[in-house]
């Protein structure tokens, strides 16, 4: 059993704990749905080709997916780490065989399942409400998974370095909102000042958005990276970032006071 058993036990407890918080479950799924309704059905894409939503509906699929791939891990991990710290749970876990990395893997699995379900709901709603025509690429699965790993690592750091649950949630919102709109998701590069374009490349979400777009909406003409196919190149970059953020996130989880 060993490592697998520990991860399974932790993930099982995390999953049960989550699904029994009805408001948390409801708003986890309600948040992306309401965004799709507002952006996709009420604001809608401008048919004249101007304004905020000037692209084809399929262009915004990565943005809608990002509402869960980005927000859910950041806020859930941030508050989960803070909650564990406040309840001295890490002090207890530090004296069990469960390692910090195993704890983070377990929490990431829980987040991945939640986000996979929410992602499916988003795809169905985007197609139904906006009429987006997308390719149902199998690449969506690794992109969502790697994105969740990446942002769970960042969320763990937020929870570890803030001093309360309130602080963790506020910090996650402060980081997630700018990233959501400045990572080639809802706002194209052409709509941003020229000097800002290099900064877009600093956001991990940019590579998620470019890769998912290349996989689901080939007509967008997502550029290759150093001659490598954009789907492959962007998942590679995102995976590299995910390895770093996951390692830093696991390391940041408090073992001692």
């Amino acid at each position: 059993m060993s490592r697998f058993g520990r991860v399974r036990s932790e993930a099982d407890a995390g999953w049960r704990s989550f699904v029994r918080r009805r408001t948390a479950v409801f708003f986890t799924f309600f948040f992306p749905v309401i965004l799709i309704v507002i952006f996709g059905a009420l604001v809608r894409t401008d048919p004249t080709g101007e304004g905020l939503f000037a692209e084809s509906p399929a262009y915004y699929v990565p943005g809608y997916l990002a509402t869960v791939v980005l927000f859910t891990p950041l806020s859930r991990m941030g508050s989960e780490v803070a909650r564990h710290r406040e309840g001295n749970r890490f002090e207890k876990l530090a004296t069990t065989p469960l390692s910090r990395a195993e704890w983070l893997v377990s929490q990431t699995i829980v987040n991945a399942v939640i986000i996979a379900l929410a992602g499916l709901l988003i795809l169905v709603m985007v197609v139904a409400l906006t009429g987006a025509r997308i390719v149902y690429s199998p690449w969506l699965v690794p992109y969502v998974l790697v994105g969740v790993i990446c942002f769970c690592g960042i969320g763990a750091m937020l929870g570890s370095y803030t001093d309360s649950r309130d602080g963790a949630i506020a910090a996650s919102n402060a980081i997630a909102f700018p990233l959501l709109f400045l990572s080639e998701t809802f706002v194209t590069l052409e709509q941003l000042p020229g000097w800002f374009e290099p900064l877009v490349n600093l956001s991990p979400l940019t590579y998620f958005a470019r890769g998912v777009r290349a996989a689901t909406y080939p007509e967008a003409g997502t550029p290759a990276v150093a001659g490598v196919d954009p789907v492959l190149a962007n998942i590679g970059i995102l995976a590299a970032v995910a390895v770093v953020t996951f390692a830093l996130g696991a390391r940041s989880i408090p073992r001692t006071d």
Binding site: D12, A13, G14, R16, S17, E86, N88, R89, E91
Partner: peptide, 26 residues
């Protein structure tokens, strides 16, 4: 180890909590 002011994960039954911690050992 039982820390002071220890609060285990919520929304789990007493049995689930004990089983959860038991699951961390071989």
């Amino acid at each position: 180890v039982l820390p002071q002011d220890f609060s285990p994960p919520d929304r789990l039954t007493a049995r689930e909590l004990v089983a959860y911690y038991a699951g961390l050992y071989d």
